[in-house]
Design a protein around this nucleic acid. Structure first.
Length: 928
RNA sequence: GGGCGAAUAGCUCAGUUGGUUAGAGCACCUGCCUUACACGCAGGGUGUCGGGGGUUCGAGUCCCUCUUCGCCCACCA
């Protein structure tokens, strides 16, 4: 109902539109339609990176999901059987931390509650607050298939996790290792290499003398950044090739404070160039020292416990003096330095910057700790994952990340998957205290209570699995694996594209690839799209702790989801960061808001002028009766479609290659496509700068007079707008759907979300379309002359066009026919002539030598007569500016901010009066 | 320490294999409320393509070098 179209787009209707889509089943995928199981549609699948179950939406999520939604909606319109699997991650450490804080606010620790009660508490917390973010994703318009919402800790996915563990164990790829691992003394859990993040910090290098035993007073000086660990020293190491210390190898030195004797060993680990070339060996508290200790069969006393407190833990009899026992590691450091100073062993302290590992969750300094952990052997898993990217079965966009991925996988180290937490998938391993190895360790798919060998009671491993172990299975587990007969698995695995941030390339992306090959023999996706980060104007990452974030829900409430989506998508180069100003939301999202409004106004005008009468489909319209403008806009539409298609690229690799992977990217397409900003810009350019600025403006007159020409114009107009809405729908789904539903001829129950993506009709612009370009050139030239000569916008002028002789009679005829259009677009009385008029005139020469002449007689004088009034208005404006700092809309009393109106009403009124006088003057002088 | 990348308008960035006068969006400047839209219309580029050197008829683009930033990886005690 065009007549009922509101003046402004009401984005409060977005939830209704969303509901209608869901009720129409627009987001629900049908496995039986997949071509992989005999259906007639190629499947296109994205698994959503599962946000933490306790998360609330931030701009990063908004960006991530807006990108995915654009791709999904585009794939759906292209005719794919589109599936977007949503879900959440139980997020081991993160969620446990949140609940532990809650428990702490009640004055308790998780140990006070006990494991069972704590897990129950966490489950209750998740049940109550979890999934908020999925609701918020609906608000931004995410077209996910909610009937398939998954959760990494659900019963179904837990089956997958256990199956994966058991299979890897049976293949010998999971093993138990006694190793020095990264330990967080606050979270009381081990961390993977990736979870223990380096920061460069100023520290101190302490030089300590160890007295050599025997005759003489020789001493060896070592340098350490962690003097407190000396209590656990079992040796000093020197490089076997270091001439300085060759004679000392095999001798004993006295460990200060402790007073026991330890050997000097030769090991390549000691770097002659660093410090004194002598290094102390503390196997239980340093990963490298541990390796040295193993090579030399040294004891491994543990002198720091799981809380980071110095005490005799194991094999440390008498090593920790009473005055140090019970001190925190950092307090112990101070104390030990003091003791060393007193004993004279401390030689000097230097400033020294070094990299310190911190817990990625709580930022506590990580403590290396000797303990038993489960590891995954990575090298065999990495091999196919590496090959996939090298061969082009998987592409990573932007391309430069491929090198980073390859580099990491080439030097991969084993993955510590056990975590000493309570929240997560418990390690499916049971221990029997009665049986002898190897029967004392039982790995099982089912829960065990008794030993299958001796029938005794067994106990389950206390640890849970790294949260990334379960998310690493995400593309498989959400589709029903390990049930190979699962319809979803058969129809939709492998998936197509993964959209995420580069930070989790190793944590998650690479591990999914490895596990995909391991369990399905196929890569989980052919495209990895890594997007940038949301940053503030100082280029700082938006974060909760910095308080520089923007709540996407605020933006949606203020300007609607489309404005948010447009701003994020159109403003983001591939892989580039999105910069927004958290202190000026209005300015940050103006682009999106403005575009939505413009689109709405185009629709409002167009639908109003087209009216309710039936519109002939373009295919049935008489092509011969079309104007040059009609032909032109249709050719521009074709160009826009081509540009959008080029920017978005192929949905999937277009060649079927006989390899284990099936599909390999061809070189020409490998890095093509998914340039979402270029796509958005192309579509915008068409609808705004071509359809609205030129076609609508040039056709205004034609729509007022009934007749065949009006009908042709209506056909072309409705067709072009319909196609434009389709092109724009993936970015701004709500406003395009609202407008599309109102197009004349719309069939009840049809949705733009399900409509087909436009296809080009003509590769080359027609002759008539090219001729319209000449009309545009004339118009642009005349406008420029008007601007250069400060001709009042309302003033009607004379324009003389002198066609180039090269164009001949054809050009002359063309220009004469288009005079009404040129006149309308330039406010001029235009004619074609062969000679220039007498007197002053402005000239412009356009393509091919055609000359545009505008006589200036009278024009300048007219403006002079208005100059006085203009000057007076300007004076008044200056008064406002001097008071308000800026003018903007304070120029007009109707639009000025309330505070300005309050203080300057008189000036504004006077200004208005003067403006009206000026307007009248100009009109009368122009004879309008 | 190793590797990768970037440096182009006030800001964010495009600039294919070297080739006319270097582009877009936002911002900015000038004028305008013209009956869809001032969240708009018309006009305007505001630039030593980080510095230096080289190859070439021709360099933002290729090579060398310097400077500055960013990212990834890494066991310098």
């Amino acid at each position: 109902m065009p007549s009922s179209l509101p003046d402004r787009y009401d984005f409060a209707t977005e939830p209704e539109t969303y509901k209608a889509w869901v009720e129409a089943g627009a987001f629900t995928a049908h496995p039986e339609r997949s071509s992989r199981v005999g259906g007639d549609r190629t499947p296109y699948t994205i698994v959503m990176p599962p946000p933490n179950v306790t998360a609330i939406l931030h701009v990063g999520h908004g960006l991530n999901n807006a990108i995915q939604d654009v791709i999904m909606r585009w794939a759906r319109m292209k005719g794919a059987e589109a599936l977007w699997v949503p879900g959440t991650d139980h997020a081991g450490i993160a969620t446990q931390n949140v609940v532990e804080k809650l428990v702490a606010s009640e004055g308790k620790t998780r140990f006070d509650l006990g494991r069972e009660a704590f897990v129950k508490r966490t489950e209750a917390f998740v049940a109550q607050t979890g999934g908020t973010i999925l609701e918020q994703l609906r608000a931004i318009g995410a077209s996910a298939d909610w009937s398939r919402t998954a959760y990494t800790l659900s019963p179904e996915l837990s089956v997958a996790v256990r199956e994966a563990f058991v299979r890897l164990y049976e293949r010998g790829l999971i093993y138990r290792g006694h190793r020095v691992i990264h330990w967080c003394p606050r979270c009381l859990t081990s961390l993977s290499d990736e979870e223990a993040e380096f920061t460069d910090e100023p520290g101190k290098l302490y030089h300590i003398a160890y007295q050599v035993s025997g005759p003489g007073s020789e001493a060896l000086v070592i340098a350490t950044t962690r003097p407190e660990t000396m209590l656990g020293d079992v040796a000093l190491a020197v490089n076997p090739n270091d001439e300085r210390y060759r004679d000392l190898i095999g001798k004993m030195v006295k460990l200060p404070i402790v007073g026991i004797e330890i050997p000097v060993v030769a090991d390549d680990y000691a770097d002659p160039a660093f410090g004194t070339g002598v290094v102390k060996i503390t196997p239980a508290h340093d990963a490298n020292d541990y390796e040295v200790g193993r090579r030399h069969s040294l004891p491994m006393p543990v002198i720091i416990d799981e809380h980071g407190v110095v005490r005799e833990v194991t094999d440390a009899d008498g090593r920790v003096p009473a005055e140090l026992a019970g001190l925190d590691r950092f307090a112990a450091r101070e104390k030990i330095v003091e003791l060393l100073r007193q004993s004279g062993a401390l030689q000097k302290i230097e400033n020294h910057n070094h990299a310190v590992r911190h817990c990625y969750r709580c930022d506590t300094v990580v403590e290396p700790r000797l303990s038993d952990q489960w590891f995954v052997k990575m090298e065999p898993l990495a091999k196919p994952a590496l090959q996939a990217v090298r061969d082009g079965a998987i592409r990573i966009l932007p391309e430069r990340w491929e090198a980073v991925y390859v580099n990491w996988l080439t030097n991969i180290r084993d993955w510590n998957i056990s975590r000493q937490l309570w929240w997560g998938h418990r390690v499916p391993v049971w221990y029997c205290d009665e049986c002898d190895p190897p029967q004392n360790i039982i790995v099982s798919r089912d829960d065990l209570t008794e030993c299958p060998y001796c029938g005794c009671a067994v106990r389950q491993d206390e640890d849970v699995l790294d949260t990334w172990f379960s998310s690493g299975l995400w593309p498989l587990s959400t589709l029903g694996w390990p049930n190979e007969k699962s319809p979803d698995l058969q129809a939709f695995y492998p998936t197509d594209t993964l959209v995420t941030a580069p930070e989790i390339l190793f944590f998650w992306v690479a591990r999914m690839v490895m596990l995909g090959y391991e369990f399905a023999g196929r890569a989980p996706y052919h495209t990895v799209y890594l997007h940038g980060t949301a940053r503030d104007t100082q280029h700082r990452k938006m974060s909760k702790s910095l308080g520089n974030g923007i709540d996407p829900m605020d933006v949606i409430e203020l300007y609607g989801a489309d404005a948010l989506r447009w701003t994020l998508i159109a403003g983001m180069g591939m892989g580039a960061d999105v910069v927004l100003d958290p202190n000026d939301i209005d300015k940050s999202f103006a682009t999106g808001r403005n575009f939505g409004t413009k689109l709405w106004n185009i629709g409002r005008f167009l639908l109003d002028r087209v009216g309710d009468d039936p519109v002939q489909p373009l295919a049935a319209a008489d092509r011969a009766a079309m104007t040059r403008a009609d032909e032109w806009i249709l050719s521009r539409l074709d160009a826009a479609i081509a540009e959008c298609d080029r920017a978005l690229g192929p949905l999937w690799p277009t060649t079927t290659h006989d390899s284990a992977d099936g599909l390999i990217w061809r070189e020409s397409e490998r890095y093509a496509g998914l340039k979402l900003n270029e796509y958005a810009e192309s579509a915008r350019q068409f609808v705004w700068n071509e359809l609205a600025d030129w076609y609508l403006e040039s056709l205004k007159g034609r729509l007022d007079a009934p007749g065949p020409d009006r009908d042709i114009a209506r056909s072309v107009l409705v067709h072009a707008f319909d196609q434009a809405l389709r092109l724009l729908h993936p970015v701004v789904p709500f406003v395009t759907e609202s407008l599309w539903q109102r197009l004349p001829g719309h069939v009840d129950g049809a949705f733009l979300v399900n409509a087909s993506w436009p296809t080009m009709t003509n590769a080359e612009p027609s002759q008539a379309a090219r001729e319209f370009e000449q009309v545009r050139e004339v118009v642009l030239a005349v406008r420029q002359i008007r601007g250069d000569n400060a001709v009042a916008p309302g003033k009607m002028i004379d324009v003389i066009i002198r066609p180039s002789s090269a164009g001949g009679a054809t050009l002359r005829a063309l220009l004469e026919q288009e005079l009404p259009t040129i006149g309308r677009l330039t406010r001029s009385e235009t004619r074609v002539a062969d000679s220039a008029p007498e007197g002053a005139a402005a000239h412009a020469v356009i393509g091919g030598g055609t000359e545009i002449i505008v006589p200036l007689a009278g024009l300048i004088d007219v403006d002079k007569e208005c100059a006085r009034l203009r000057g007076e208005v300007a004076e008044l404006e200056k008064q406002i500016i001097s008071r308000e700092g800026r003018l903007s809309n304070a120029k007009y009393v109707e639009r000025a901010p309330p505070n300005v109106v309050a203080s300057d009403r008189a000036i504004l009124q006077e200004m208005k009066t003067k403006r009206e006088q000026l307007s009248d003057k100009v009109r009368s002088l122009c004879g309008a």
